[in-house]
Design a protein around this nucleic acid. Sequence first.
DNA 1: AAAGACACCTGTCCGC
DNA 2: TGCGGACAGGTGTCTT
Length: 270
Amino acid sequence: MPELPEVETTCRGIRPYVVGCKVSSIVVRQPKLRWPIPESLHELEGQKVLSVKRRAKYILLESAKGTAILHLGMSGSLRVIDVDLAPEKHDHIDIIFATGKAVRLHDPRRFGAVLWTREDPLQHKLLSHLGPEPLSDDFNAALLYQVSRSRKVAVKQFIMNAKVVVGVGNIYASESLFMAGISPKISAGRISLARYKTLANAIKIVLTRSIEQGGTTLRDFVQAEGKPGYFQQQLNVYGRAGEACTVCGTQIKQISQGQRSSFYCSNCQK
DNA sequence: AAAGACACCTGTCCGC
DNA sequence: TGCGGACAGGTGTCTT
């Protein structure tokens, strides 16, 4: 499911029901996620949530005692529900608020995570080595150009590397490269500064537009209030192998790069 | 240091 | 209808 736009959509969706609200209890039905859910997570009980922040694809629920770090993995979603709504299969955790609402984590594949830290969450081992946010000014062509020199990896895998830039997952990597007219197969180190300007701009536009549409729902992503995203209607290449390019009509190709599928138009992207 | 393979887990879809 | 295999939005870890 979630790349940056879906995580951002989720944060915006839960924020009104969470910020300033007191956590009355936390129910863990399945502690075996990517890592075991720590017992210390219960330190959030009795605390007021001070903020909901996002860093990369991590969701941070901050309190005076510490911060819950959530990740949605490949198939996770958070929904705001009434506390008495019966849980269904794969509803692993409820963070229950004194308001009578709860945030419920649903994650069939259990690649997601829920962690707890008493320190600055940005110093957490999982967050401290991440690259810049793609929608910030720290992410730009100069950075891509500089970091890519002498790198032989394909540009598609390069922009999906969270040490280079966070939040660009498999869908938006393909879509951004299409918008920029760059083949996913080109070595990152052989791309000019001018082309990286086009690419950095494309990444920002694609992610921003997707956030505006509530993200992309391929199978099971839902926003906090249960609605799907709508950006999938604007996908030009992802999942469209064999179909006609929306620009030139050439058949969209699918290849495998780094064990992930890539989609591109061999005529529009060089 | 960089790149590639693999691991985690469940559900779905496709071909036979 | 059933079964095996491939594949799916992520990313840490281990091996070359």
